[in-house]
Design a binder for these strands. Structure first.
Lengths: 195, 195
DNA sequence: CCTTCCATGAAGCGACTGCTACATTATCGC
DNA sequence: GCGATAATGTAGCAGTCGCTTCATGGAAGG
């Protein structure tokens, strides 16, 4: 009775670790990566920095674990969109930018953009995580695009736009209001009358 | 004789402050914003943190002063490009992305993208600086674009692309190799056959 | 020569960081 | 009940951070 349950009270070590990771993940999604000091983090979680190190071994392991969990949560969210048929770059950009304004998805976009921004500054362990994330995303975008033998769209082009818009929006809220739709339409027009 | 000279040996207080700012600016352009701790900064400059605070008052004042100086240096570099006639969004993007691969201009792009990334993370004083910089750049881009009454290109759209490409290139070098040219051509095609 | 003020060095403060050593409590097998 | 093991609290270490205090050197002015 105390062994086989997979109920929301795992109570063993791995379960506790998982519960902590989940709590940190939701906190990060709510408040961003800026609040990742061990003491402050533990205080918000109702535990101590001592415990975080005890369960995760190091802060870097905690960060990578939490980011992996956030990645899984997002991939679940995106499965609904991955199921549809491949689309043109312009349509894809329009979908993703609209998705980025969805209050459920927006925190994920902000976190990943923050990760990439920290990676750009060379901050560990975000640099390592970011490389894997960028690789994953370009691969995913590649599967979402209808192939164009003439002018194949590099997935990194769309990823750059999404990251750029998200970054600018985080730094200067409202500054990209008109940019997203214009870009999506421009890419659509670029692909449309030519092929 | 000790008063009116504007020679490269100012020797008075404002001059010394300026020389320090210039040295920090060149250091930042060479090594990025990651090296902005007062002690390490002072060591590389052959002075002490004590002196940096003495001349600048605070680290935030130093940072904003240095960033302002970097901005002036870049605007001087860009004057050559600002002189030409307005161009289409696609042509502008191609010019700027090519410029961003120029080894002289690239450090500036990286620094500004880093500033905006730190602003996105809410880090002071970069948040304040970034707002001003984004405002300046969108204005400048606006003056560089040939007006299009039908589908006016929001300057923030181009700025987003440039920032996104630079950010991704900083986080994952090489990942955007094909993205830039494709985007420039796509925007050109979007504007071309329609108008 | 003596004072006065500017520039600089040396040391340190307090707050923070990730992390650890020690001690304590709680839990479980016997 | 008892001993072992796991979980947790307390305090602290060594480091960095921006910044300050005190002391000193050294040049300018009377």
């Amino acid at each position: 009775m105390t062994e086989d349950s997979a109920d929301p009270a795992p109570a063993d070590r791995a379960g506790r670790r998982d519960a902590l990771a989940e709590a940190v993940a939701e906190l990060v999604l709510r408040e961003g990566l800026g609040t990742m000091g061990l003491r402050g983090l533990a205080r918000r979680l109702g535990t101590s920095d001592r415990m975080l190190i005890y369960y995760f071994g190091s802060k870097d392991a905690l960060v990578t674990g939490v980011l992996a969990r956030i990645g899984e949560k997002l991939s679940v969210l995106l499965q609904a969109y991955s199921a549809g048929p491949p689309v043109s770059p312009g349509a894809f950009l329009g979908q993703v930018l609209a998705l980025g304004r969805d209050p459920v998805v927006m925190p994920f976009m902000r976190v990943w953009t923050d990760v990439i921004a920290r990676a750009a500054a060379g901050e560990a362990p975000y640099d390592t995580v970011a490389k894997a994330v960028v690789a994953d995303w370009t691969a995913w975008i590649g599967t979402r695009l209808v192939p164009d033998p003439d002018r194949p769209c590099p997935p990194a082009a769309l990823l750059s736009i999404v990251e750029g818009v998200t970054l600018l929006e985080m730094a200067c809220p409202g500054s990209t209001a008109a940019a997203g739709p214009w870009l999506a339409e421009a890419l659509t027009r670029a692909g449309g009358p030519s092929a």
